[in-house]
Design a protein around this nucleic acid. Structure first.
Lengths: 209, 209
DNA sequence: ACCTGAACACCGTTCAAGT
DNA sequence: ACCTGAACACCGTTCAAGT
Protein backbone atom coordinates (compact mmCIF):
# COMPACT_ATOMS: atom_id res chain seq x y z
CA UNK A 1 0.00 0.00 0.00
CA UNK A 2 2.77 2.37 0.97
CA UNK A 3 2.13 6.05 1.41
CA UNK A 4 -1.44 7.10 0.68
CA UNK A 5 -2.36 10.48 -0.80
CA UNK A 6 -4.15 11.44 2.35
CA UNK A 7 -2.79 10.21 5.67
CA UNK A 8 -4.80 7.32 7.04
CA UNK A 9 -4.08 8.29 10.61
CA UNK A 10 -4.21 11.53 12.50
CA UNK A 11 -3.11 12.01 16.08
CA UNK A 12 -6.66 12.95 16.84
CA UNK A 13 -7.95 9.67 15.45
CA UNK A 14 -5.38 7.76 17.48
CA UNK A 15 -6.46 9.43 20.69
CA UNK A 16 -10.14 8.95 19.94
CA UNK A 17 -9.69 5.27 19.17
CA UNK A 18 -7.52 4.79 22.25
CA UNK A 19 -10.11 6.37 24.51
CA UNK A 20 -12.88 4.27 22.97
CA UNK A 21 -10.84 1.15 23.58
CA UNK A 22 -10.23 2.13 27.19
CA UNK A 23 -13.85 3.03 27.83
CA UNK A 24 -15.10 -0.23 26.37
CA UNK A 25 -12.74 -2.76 27.85
CA UNK A 26 -10.35 -0.98 30.13
CA UNK A 27 -7.36 -2.41 28.44
CA UNK A 28 -5.43 -0.89 25.71
CA UNK A 29 -2.76 -2.26 23.44
CA UNK A 30 -1.14 -1.12 20.24
CA UNK A 31 -2.33 -4.14 18.21
CA UNK A 32 -5.92 -3.48 19.25
CA UNK A 33 -5.55 0.21 18.60
CA UNK A 34 -4.17 -0.43 15.13
CA UNK A 35 -6.96 -2.87 14.35
CA UNK A 36 -9.58 -0.34 15.37
CA UNK A 37 -8.15 2.36 13.16
CA UNK A 38 -7.73 -0.17 10.39
CA UNK A 39 -4.05 0.29 9.96
CA UNK A 40 -0.91 -1.65 10.67
CA UNK A 41 0.61 -1.59 14.09
CA UNK A 42 3.86 -0.05 13.04
CA UNK A 43 2.37 2.87 11.15
CA UNK A 44 1.19 4.39 14.40
CA UNK A 45 4.81 5.19 15.16
CA UNK A 46 4.76 7.68 12.32
CA UNK A 47 2.49 9.89 14.38
CA UNK A 48 3.39 9.21 17.96
CA UNK A 49 6.44 8.13 19.89
CA UNK A 50 4.84 5.13 21.52
CA UNK A 51 2.44 3.86 24.12
CA UNK A 52 3.37 6.38 26.80
CA UNK A 53 2.73 9.37 24.57
CA UNK A 54 -0.63 8.00 23.52
CA UNK A 55 -1.69 7.64 27.15
CA UNK A 56 -0.49 11.14 27.91
CA UNK A 57 -2.56 12.43 24.99
CA UNK A 58 -5.55 10.54 26.33
CA UNK A 59 -5.02 12.24 29.68
CA UNK A 60 -5.17 15.53 27.83
CA UNK A 61 -8.35 14.64 25.99
CA UNK A 62 -10.04 13.62 29.24
CA UNK A 63 -8.93 16.69 31.13
CA UNK A 64 -9.55 19.29 28.49
CA UNK A 65 -13.26 19.42 29.26
CA UNK A 66 -13.31 23.11 30.06
CA UNK A 67 -12.86 24.04 33.69
CA UNK A 68 -16.40 24.66 34.78
CA UNK A 69 -16.97 28.32 35.51
CA UNK A 70 -17.74 29.06 39.12
CA UNK A 71 -21.06 30.78 39.02
CA UNK A 72 -21.28 33.12 41.90
CA UNK A 73 -23.62 36.00 42.63
CA UNK A 74 -22.40 39.02 40.64
CA UNK A 75 -19.78 41.05 42.41
CA UNK A 76 -18.84 38.20 44.75
CA UNK A 77 -15.24 37.10 44.61
CA UNK A 78 -14.42 33.40 44.55
CA UNK A 79 -12.55 32.39 47.69
CA UNK A 80 -9.55 30.10 47.55
CA UNK A 81 -11.82 27.42 48.96
CA UNK A 82 -14.34 27.83 46.17
CA UNK A 83 -11.59 27.54 43.60
CA UNK A 84 -9.97 24.51 45.17
CA UNK A 85 -13.20 22.67 45.71
CA UNK A 86 -14.29 23.34 42.17
CA UNK A 87 -11.02 22.24 40.60
CA UNK A 88 -10.93 19.01 42.55
CA UNK A 89 -14.52 18.30 41.68
CA UNK A 90 -13.92 18.98 37.99
CA UNK A 91 -10.86 16.79 37.92
CA UNK A 92 -12.77 13.97 39.45
CA UNK A 93 -15.81 14.44 37.21
CA UNK A 94 -13.63 14.25 34.15
CA UNK A 95 -12.40 10.87 35.26
CA UNK A 96 -15.89 9.83 36.27
CA UNK A 97 -16.73 9.94 32.58
CA UNK A 98 -13.88 7.55 31.82
CA UNK A 99 -13.48 5.44 34.93
CA UNK A 100 -11.26 2.85 33.31
CA UNK A 101 -8.74 5.42 32.21
CA UNK A 102 -7.49 6.23 35.69
CA UNK A 103 -5.54 3.04 36.39
CA UNK A 104 -3.60 3.49 33.15
CA UNK A 105 -2.51 7.00 34.05
CA UNK A 106 -1.39 6.49 37.61
CA UNK A 107 2.13 5.46 36.91
CA UNK A 108 3.03 8.10 34.37
CA UNK A 109 4.57 11.50 34.96
CA UNK A 110 2.08 14.27 34.20
CA UNK A 111 3.26 16.19 31.18
CA UNK A 112 -0.03 17.30 29.72
CA UNK A 113 -0.39 21.10 29.71
CA UNK A 114 -4.08 21.00 30.60
CA UNK A 115 -3.35 19.04 33.73
CA UNK A 116 -0.36 21.19 34.60
CA UNK A 117 -2.64 24.23 34.24
CA UNK A 118 -5.13 22.66 36.60
CA UNK A 119 -2.48 22.16 39.25
CA UNK A 120 -1.27 25.68 38.64
CA UNK A 121 -4.73 27.04 39.44
CA UNK A 122 -4.80 25.01 42.62
CA UNK A 123 -1.33 26.18 43.61
CA UNK A 124 -2.45 29.79 43.12
CA UNK A 125 -5.48 29.25 45.31
CA UNK A 126 -3.28 27.77 48.02
CA UNK A 127 -0.94 30.76 47.86
CA UNK A 128 -3.92 33.05 48.13
CA UNK A 129 -4.87 31.16 51.27
CA UNK A 130 -1.47 32.01 52.67
CA UNK A 131 0.35 28.73 52.19
CA UNK A 132 3.89 29.03 50.93
CA UNK A 133 6.59 26.91 49.32
CA UNK A 134 6.77 23.35 50.59
CA UNK A 135 3.37 23.69 52.25
CA UNK A 136 1.80 24.34 48.87
CA UNK A 137 3.55 21.29 47.48
CA UNK A 138 2.44 19.18 50.44
CA UNK A 139 -1.15 20.30 50.08
CA UNK A 140 -1.05 19.59 46.35
CA UNK A 141 0.38 16.14 46.99
CA UNK A 142 -2.48 15.45 49.36
CA UNK A 143 -5.10 16.72 46.94
CA UNK A 144 -3.47 14.69 44.22
CA UNK A 145 -3.59 11.49 46.25
CA UNK A 146 -7.18 12.12 47.10
CA UNK A 147 -8.25 12.89 43.53
CA UNK A 148 -6.40 9.93 42.07
CA UNK A 149 -7.76 7.68 44.79
CA UNK A 150 -11.29 8.84 44.04
CA UNK A 151 -10.71 8.21 40.36
CA UNK A 152 -9.32 4.73 41.01
CA UNK A 153 -12.29 4.09 43.24
CA UNK A 154 -14.56 4.61 40.23
CA UNK A 155 -12.61 2.07 38.24
CA UNK A 156 -12.33 -0.42 41.06
CA UNK A 157 -14.34 -3.63 41.04
CA UNK A 158 -17.38 -3.64 43.35
CA UNK A 159 -15.46 -4.54 46.46
CA UNK A 160 -12.10 -3.11 47.21
CA UNK A 161 -11.73 -5.31 50.25
CA UNK A 162 -12.40 -8.98 50.03
CA UNK A 163 -14.55 -9.27 53.15
CA UNK A 164 -17.06 -12.09 53.49
CA UNK A 165 -20.59 -10.61 53.57
CA UNK A 166 -22.26 -10.62 56.97
CA UNK A 167 -18.96 -10.66 58.80
CA UNK A 168 -19.40 -9.31 62.31
CA UNK A 169 -16.67 -6.73 62.35
CA UNK A 170 -16.30 -3.00 62.04
CA UNK A 171 -14.98 -3.42 58.52
CA UNK A 172 -17.85 -5.76 57.65
CA UNK A 173 -20.38 -3.22 58.90
CA UNK A 174 -18.67 -0.44 56.98
CA UNK A 175 -18.72 -2.42 53.74
CA UNK A 176 -22.35 -3.32 54.30
CA UNK A 177 -23.35 0.23 55.15
CA UNK A 178 -21.69 1.48 52.01
CA UNK A 179 -23.19 -1.20 49.79
CA UNK A 180 -26.67 0.07 50.59
CA UNK A 181 -25.86 3.36 48.94
CA UNK A 182 -26.73 3.95 45.32
CA UNK A 183 -23.44 5.70 44.75
CA UNK A 184 -20.90 4.63 47.29
CA UNK A 185 -18.02 6.25 45.44
CA UNK A 186 -19.89 9.53 45.14
CA UNK A 187 -20.67 9.66 48.85
CA UNK A 188 -17.13 8.80 49.81
CA UNK A 189 -15.82 11.50 47.52
CA UNK A 190 -18.02 14.21 49.03
CA UNK A 191 -17.14 13.11 52.57
CA UNK A 192 -13.45 13.16 51.74
CA UNK A 193 -13.58 16.46 49.91
CA UNK A 194 -15.19 18.25 52.84
CA UNK A 195 -12.86 16.64 55.36
CA UNK A 196 -9.91 17.67 53.24
CA UNK A 197 -11.15 21.25 52.94
CA UNK A 198 -11.73 21.37 56.69
CA UNK A 199 -8.23 20.13 57.30
CA UNK A 200 -6.72 22.79 55.05
CA UNK A 201 -8.86 25.58 56.51
CA UNK A 202 -7.79 24.62 60.00
CA UNK A 203 -4.12 24.63 59.05
CA UNK A 204 -4.56 27.98 57.36
CA UNK A 205 -5.83 29.45 60.63
CA UNK A 206 -2.63 28.30 62.30
CA UNK A 207 -0.27 29.68 59.68
CA UNK A 208 0.53 32.86 61.58
CA UNK A 209 0.99 31.10 64.90
CA UNK B 1 15.18 -33.35 35.67
CA UNK B 2 11.61 -34.11 36.68
CA UNK B 3 10.56 -34.26 40.28
CA UNK B 4 13.41 -33.75 42.75
CA UNK B 5 13.53 -35.42 46.13
CA UNK B 6 13.26 -32.13 47.86
CA UNK B 7 11.14 -29.40 46.26
CA UNK B 8 13.30 -26.78 44.56
CA UNK B 9 10.77 -24.07 45.22
CA UNK B 10 8.84 -22.99 48.25
CA UNK B 11 6.21 -20.31 48.30
CA UNK B 12 8.42 -18.47 50.71
CA UNK B 13 11.31 -18.51 48.28
CA UNK B 14 9.05 -17.27 45.51
CA UNK B 15 7.89 -14.33 47.58
CA UNK B 16 11.41 -13.50 48.72
CA UNK B 17 12.76 -13.58 45.18
CA UNK B 18 9.83 -11.53 43.88
CA UNK B 19 10.37 -8.87 46.51
CA UNK B 20 14.10 -8.75 45.78
CA UNK B 21 13.35 -8.31 42.10
CA UNK B 22 10.90 -5.50 42.82
CA UNK B 23 13.24 -3.74 45.23
CA UNK B 24 16.13 -3.88 42.80
CA UNK B 25 14.52 -2.91 39.55
CA UNK B 26 10.88 -2.16 40.18
CA UNK B 27 9.74 -4.51 37.52
CA UNK B 28 8.78 -8.03 37.98
CA UNK B 29 8.10 -10.78 35.52
CA UNK B 30 7.76 -14.53 35.74
CA UNK B 31 10.74 -15.24 33.47
CA UNK B 32 12.97 -13.08 35.66
CA UNK B 33 11.56 -14.59 38.80
CA UNK B 34 12.19 -18.11 37.52
CA UNK B 35 15.73 -17.21 36.52
CA UNK B 36 16.46 -15.84 39.95
CA UNK B 37 15.24 -18.96 41.70
CA UNK B 38 17.06 -21.05 39.14
CA UNK B 39 14.08 -22.98 37.98
CA UNK B 40 11.92 -23.12 34.88
CA UNK B 41 9.15 -20.63 34.37
CA UNK B 42 6.38 -23.14 34.35
CA UNK B 43 7.31 -24.89 37.56
CA UNK B 44 6.30 -21.83 39.53
CA UNK B 45 2.72 -22.70 38.71
CA UNK B 46 3.04 -25.76 40.91
CA UNK B 47 3.15 -23.52 43.94
CA UNK B 48 1.13 -20.50 43.04
CA UNK B 49 -1.80 -19.69 40.77
CA UNK B 50 -0.05 -16.97 38.82
CA UNK B 51 1.26 -13.46 38.79
CA UNK B 52 -1.62 -11.95 40.75
CA UNK B 53 -1.28 -14.34 43.65
CA UNK B 54 2.45 -13.70 43.84
CA UNK B 55 1.87 -9.95 44.09
CA UNK B 56 -0.77 -10.48 46.74
CA UNK B 57 1.70 -12.60 48.72
CA UNK B 58 4.28 -9.84 48.35
CA UNK B 59 1.75 -7.41 49.74
CA UNK B 60 1.41 -9.73 52.72
CA UNK B 61 5.14 -9.96 53.24
CA UNK B 62 5.50 -6.19 53.17
CA UNK B 63 2.60 -5.57 55.48
CA UNK B 64 3.27 -8.27 58.03
CA UNK B 65 5.93 -6.19 59.76
CA UNK B 66 4.25 -6.24 63.15
CA UNK B 67 1.90 -3.35 63.87
CA UNK B 68 4.07 -1.16 66.02
CA UNK B 69 2.81 -1.09 69.58
CA UNK B 70 1.60 2.29 70.72
CA UNK B 71 3.66 3.08 73.72
CA UNK B 72 1.69 5.28 76.02
CA UNK B 73 2.13 6.19 79.64
CA UNK B 74 0.86 3.27 81.75
CA UNK B 75 -2.85 3.49 82.47
CA UNK B 76 -3.48 5.82 79.58
CA UNK B 77 -5.93 4.54 76.98
CA UNK B 78 -5.15 4.98 73.33
CA UNK B 79 -7.64 7.31 71.70
CA UNK B 80 -9.14 6.53 68.30
CA UNK B 81 -6.90 9.23 66.93
CA UNK B 82 -3.78 7.60 68.32
CA UNK B 83 -4.78 4.31 66.78
CA UNK B 84 -5.63 5.76 63.38
CA UNK B 85 -2.54 7.87 63.16
CA UNK B 86 -0.36 4.95 64.15
CA UNK B 87 -1.92 2.53 61.67
CA UNK B 88 -1.62 4.96 58.78
CA UNK B 89 1.97 5.67 59.68
CA UNK B 90 2.83 1.99 59.94
CA UNK B 91 1.19 1.23 56.61
CA UNK B 92 3.15 3.94 54.94
CA UNK B 93 6.42 3.00 56.66
CA UNK B 94 6.06 -0.55 55.43
CA UNK B 95 5.85 0.71 51.88
CA UNK B 96 8.65 3.17 52.50
CA UNK B 97 10.91 0.16 52.87
CA UNK B 98 9.81 -1.11 49.45
CA UNK B 99 8.94 1.99 47.47
CA UNK B 100 8.81 0.25 44.11
CA UNK B 101 6.25 -2.25 45.27
CA UNK B 102 3.39 0.21 45.58
CA UNK B 103 2.70 0.78 41.89
CA UNK B 104 2.35 -2.95 41.35
CA UNK B 105 -0.25 -3.32 44.08
CA UNK B 106 -2.53 -0.43 43.23
CA UNK B 107 -4.69 -2.18 40.74
CA UNK B 108 -5.33 -5.36 42.65
CA UNK B 109 -8.13 -6.17 45.07
CA UNK B 110 -6.81 -6.51 48.60
CA UNK B 111 -7.17 -10.10 49.74
CA UNK B 112 -4.27 -10.39 52.12
CA UNK B 113 -5.41 -11.08 55.70
CA UNK B 114 -2.76 -8.84 57.25
CA UNK B 115 -3.97 -5.90 55.24
CA UNK B 116 -7.61 -6.71 55.90
CA UNK B 117 -6.74 -6.80 59.62
CA UNK B 118 -5.12 -3.40 59.37
CA UNK B 119 -8.28 -1.93 57.84
CA UNK B 120 -10.32 -3.69 60.47
CA UNK B 121 -8.37 -1.94 63.21
CA UNK B 122 -8.93 1.38 61.51
CA UNK B 123 -12.64 0.69 61.08
CA UNK B 124 -12.89 -0.08 64.82
CA UNK B 125 -11.16 3.15 65.70
CA UNK B 126 -13.58 5.07 63.49
CA UNK B 127 -16.55 3.40 65.16
CA UNK B 128 -15.10 4.28 68.52
CA UNK B 129 -14.99 7.87 67.32
CA UNK B 130 -18.69 7.65 66.66
CA UNK B 131 -18.72 7.23 62.91
CA UNK B 132 -21.18 4.68 61.56
CA UNK B 133 -21.86 2.65 58.43
CA UNK B 134 -21.21 4.50 55.21
CA UNK B 135 -19.29 7.22 57.04
CA UNK B 136 -16.79 4.63 58.22
CA UNK B 137 -16.45 3.36 54.66
CA UNK B 138 -16.02 6.90 53.34
CA UNK B 139 -13.38 7.72 55.91
CA UNK B 140 -11.56 4.47 55.12
CA UNK B 141 -11.68 5.24 51.41
CA UNK B 142 -10.12 8.61 52.10
CA UNK B 143 -7.42 7.17 54.31
CA UNK B 144 -6.79 4.53 51.69
CA UNK B 145 -6.35 7.09 48.92
CA UNK B 146 -4.03 9.08 51.10
CA UNK B 147 -1.91 6.13 52.14
CA UNK B 148 -1.64 4.75 48.62
CA UNK B 149 -0.87 8.20 47.28
CA UNK B 150 1.88 8.62 49.84
CA UNK B 151 3.25 5.21 48.89
CA UNK B 152 3.16 6.03 45.18
CA UNK B 153 4.87 9.29 45.98
CA UNK B 154 7.82 7.33 47.34
CA UNK B 155 8.05 5.35 44.13
CA UNK B 156 7.57 8.33 41.84
CA UNK B 157 10.44 9.75 39.87
CA UNK B 158 11.88 12.97 41.26
CA UNK B 159 9.34 15.25 39.70
CA UNK B 160 5.70 14.32 39.54
CA UNK B 161 4.92 17.37 37.49
CA UNK B 162 6.95 18.20 34.45
CA UNK B 163 7.45 21.89 35.23
CA UNK B 164 10.40 23.78 33.79
CA UNK B 165 12.70 24.86 36.64
CA UNK B 166 12.61 28.55 37.46
CA UNK B 167 9.12 28.97 36.05
CA UNK B 168 7.46 32.01 37.58
CA UNK B 169 4.22 30.44 38.72
CA UNK B 170 2.64 29.23 41.91
CA UNK B 171 3.27 25.65 40.86
CA UNK B 172 6.86 26.46 39.96
CA UNK B 173 7.42 28.01 43.37
CA UNK B 174 5.80 25.02 45.09
CA UNK B 175 8.01 22.55 43.23
CA UNK B 176 11.07 24.63 44.01
CA UNK B 177 10.15 25.01 47.67
CA UNK B 178 9.69 21.29 47.98
CA UNK B 179 12.91 20.43 46.15
CA UNK B 180 14.90 22.21 48.83
CA UNK B 181 13.72 19.72 51.41
CA UNK B 182 15.78 16.69 52.22
CA UNK B 183 12.69 14.54 52.35
CA UNK B 184 9.93 16.08 50.34
CA UNK B 185 7.76 12.97 50.49
CA UNK B 186 8.16 12.71 54.25
CA UNK B 187 7.15 16.32 54.83
CA UNK B 188 4.16 16.02 52.52
CA UNK B 189 3.06 12.89 54.32
CA UNK B 190 3.17 14.50 57.76
CA UNK B 191 1.34 17.57 56.50
CA UNK B 192 -1.34 15.42 54.91
CA UNK B 193 -1.68 13.12 57.88
CA UNK B 194 -2.32 15.98 60.28
CA UNK B 195 -4.73 17.70 57.89
CA UNK B 196 -6.59 14.44 57.46
CA UNK B 197 -6.83 13.88 61.21
CA UNK B 198 -8.02 17.45 61.68
CA UNK B 199 -10.70 16.93 59.06
CA UNK B 200 -11.93 13.76 60.74
CA UNK B 201 -11.89 15.29 64.21
CA UNK B 202 -13.93 18.22 63.00
CA UNK B 203 -16.51 15.97 61.37
CA UNK B 204 -16.67 13.91 64.53
CA UNK B 205 -17.64 17.00 66.50
CA UNK B 206 -20.55 17.55 64.12
CA UNK B 207 -21.82 13.99 64.25
CA UNK B 208 -24.55 14.68 66.79
CA UNK B 209 -25.60 17.93 65.12
C1' DA C 1 3.93 -34.11 43.88
C1' DC C 2 6.98 -31.36 41.36
C1' DC C 3 9.98 -30.36 37.54
C1' DT C 4 10.91 -29.50 32.28
C1' DG C 5 10.41 -27.93 27.48
C1' DA C 6 7.52 -26.67 24.00
C1' DA C 7 3.68 -24.21 22.62
C1' DC C 8 0.16 -20.51 22.54
C1' DA C 9 -1.52 -16.10 22.37
C1' DC C 10 -0.26 -12.08 23.47
C1' DC C 11 2.78 -7.56 24.19
C1' DG C 12 5.81 -2.78 22.47
C1' DT C 13 9.23 -1.24 19.28
C1' DT C 14 12.37 -1.14 15.22
C1' DC C 15 13.49 -1.16 10.54
C1' DA C 16 14.11 -2.10 5.60
C1' DA C 17 11.23 -1.71 1.76
C1' DG C 18 7.86 0.48 -0.86
C1' DT C 19 5.57 4.82 -3.09
C1' DA D 1 5.97 11.80 4.45
C1' DC D 2 3.51 7.77 5.55
C1' DC D 3 2.28 3.01 5.05
C1' DT D 4 3.47 -2.28 5.26
C1' DG D 5 5.33 -6.76 6.78
C1' DA D 6 8.74 -9.06 9.06
C1' DA D 7 11.50 -9.36 12.92
C1' DC D 8 13.02 -8.88 17.77
C1' DA D 9 12.79 -9.31 22.48
C1' DC D 10 9.79 -9.64 25.59
C1' DC D 11 5.23 -11.11 28.37
C1' DG D 12 1.72 -14.80 31.29
C1' DT D 13 -0.28 -19.31 31.11
C1' DT D 14 -1.12 -24.19 29.73
C1' DC D 15 0.02 -28.81 29.09
C1' DA D 16 2.02 -33.32 27.85
C1' DA D 17 5.90 -35.75 29.35
C1' DG D 18 8.98 -37.29 32.71
C1' DT D 19 10.17 -39.34 37.58
Amino acid sequence: MARPLKPLISIDAVVTAALELIDESGDFSLPKLAARIGVSQSSIYNHVSGREEILELVRGRITEGDPQALDLAPGVEATWEDVLRSEIRTYRENFARHPRAAPLMVMQTVRNPHVIALYERMASALEEAGFRGADVASALAMIDSFAIGAALDLAAPGNVWDVAPGTESALGRAVEGASKLADRAETAFEFGLEALMDGLRLRQGRLGR
